[in-house]
Amino acid sequence: MELVTATLGNDGLLLQGLDGKIDGLVIAAFGAGHVPQTWCARLQALAETMPVVLSSRIGTGPVLSSTREFPGSESDLLSRGLISAGTLDPYKARLLLGAHLAAGSSRAEIAKAFGDRH
């Protein structure tokens, strides 16, 4: 399992080559849950093979669900299969995801644990 943080100018290079090497991923996104547009296709592909949890790197406040509609927005990412961490910061989300992966939880069980309704 890995945690990848979105930063300005980051092209998502750290997302490359993760298939088959990890069993889950937490994304520490900007503010309400946004990432660079260049990350979208890769995150969608990863979400098809493992649980990918979307958290906010700011440490307080939730990942929102419908503030804007553009590639890389939280609503776009949730529609691509990412799981919202809700109010959990990236480190807490990583702990919860890790516990569920260790227990052998299904993707649906993991989504339910995060309170995901998508």
Rank of each mutant, 00 (worst) to 15 (best):
G17A: 14
L18W: 10
D19H: 11
G20A: 11
G20T: 13
K21Q: 05
K21Y: 01
K21C: 00
K21L: 03
D23V: 02
G24F: 10
G24V: 11
G24P: 08
V26F: 01
V26P: 00
I27L: 08
I27A: 02
A28T: 09
A28C: 09
A29F: 12
A29T: 09
G31R: 07
G31M: 08
G31C: 08
A32R: 13
A32T: 15
A32K: 10
G33I: 10
P36D: 09
P36N: 08
Q37R: 15
Q37K: 14
T38R: 05
W39P: 02
R42D: 03
L43D: 01
L43F: 05
L43K: 03
Q44A: 11
L46Q: 11
L46S: 08
A47P: 06
E48Y: 04
T49A: 10
T49I: 09
T49D: 05
M50F: 11
M50T: 06
P51E: 03
V52Y: 01
V52C: 01
V53A: 09
L54N: 02
S55V: 01
S56K: 03
S56Y: 08
R57L: 07
G59R: 15
G59Y: 14
T60Y: 11
G61P: 05
P62I: 05
P62F: 06
P62Y: 04
P62E: 13
V63R: 03
L64Y: 09
S65N: 09
S65M: 07
S66P: 04
S66C: 12
S66V: 12
S66L: 12
T67M: 07
R68T: 12
R68Y: 15
E69V: 13
F70Y: 15
P71T: 13
P71I: 13
G72A: 04
G72D: 04
S73E: 06
E74N: 00
S75E: 14
S75F: 05
L77M: 09
L77D: 04
L78Y: 04
G81P: 08
G81R: 03
G81Q: 04
G81L: 04
L82R: 02
L82K: 03
I83N: 02
S84H: 00
S84K: 01
G86A: 04
L88E: 08
L88M: 15
L88C: 04
D89G: 08
P90C: 08
P90D: 09
P90I: 14
Y91P: 00
Y91F: 13
R94A: 15
G98L: 07
